[in-house]
């Protein structure tokens, strides 16, 4: 190919590649509206099996025991360490086995995943993970009462 026609081909390839690449099927992760149902607040109580105190989001895995004695594993997504720390929740406040009460919104895909908005810690404090006025569970209550 001559140098003149090489570039249009390159440009077309690049554009096509880029378009194809951005057409990922499962956008449904992350953005709150994408992954969680704002009309389905839910509360779970369970003991911690795993903690990921990470950026950009933290994750807590709870084993929840239902009335029949069945154990199911739930994933709770929280803010990053800075966000939690500003609300009074530090990594050392919890350990494996502790019991948490989590209020949040259920994932749309039916999986046992929650966008955690209010968490009651073992020491009795309630941490509100949202921002005032966002309409989540715990919105309007005094923070860290």
């Amino acid at each position: 190919m001559s140098s003149r026609s090489r570039l249009p081909v390159l440009a077309a390839l690049a554009l096509g590649f880029a378009l194809a690449a951005t057409a990922q099927p499962s956008w449904a992760h992350h953005s709150f509206a994408a992954e969680f149902d704002g009309d389905k607040p839910i509360r779970i109580t369970g003991h911690i099996t795993k903690v990921q105190w990470t950026n950009p989001h933290s994750y807590f895995y709870l084993d929840v025991i239902d009335t029949k004695g069945h154990i199911s594993s739930w994933a709770c997504e929280g803010g990053g360490p800075g966000s939690l720390s500003r609300r009074g929740w530090k990594k050392q406040d919890i350990k494996i086995g502790d019991v948490l009460v989590v209020d949040g919104f259920l994932a749309k895909d039916g999986s046992r995943t929650i966008d955690a908005r209010r968490v009651k810690l073992p020491d009795g404090r309630s941490i509100y993970g949202g921002t005032p006025g966002d309409g989540g569970p715990g919105d309007g209550e005094a923070v860290n009462k």
Binding site: W27, A28, H30, S31, F32, A33, A34, E35, G38, K108
Partner: peptide, 13 residues
């Protein structure tokens, strides 16, 4: 519509 969409906020952002 924006709140209910799984992709709208992402594209807009």
């Amino acid at each position: 519509a924006i709140r209910g969409s799984s992709w709208a906020f992402a594209i807009i952002e």
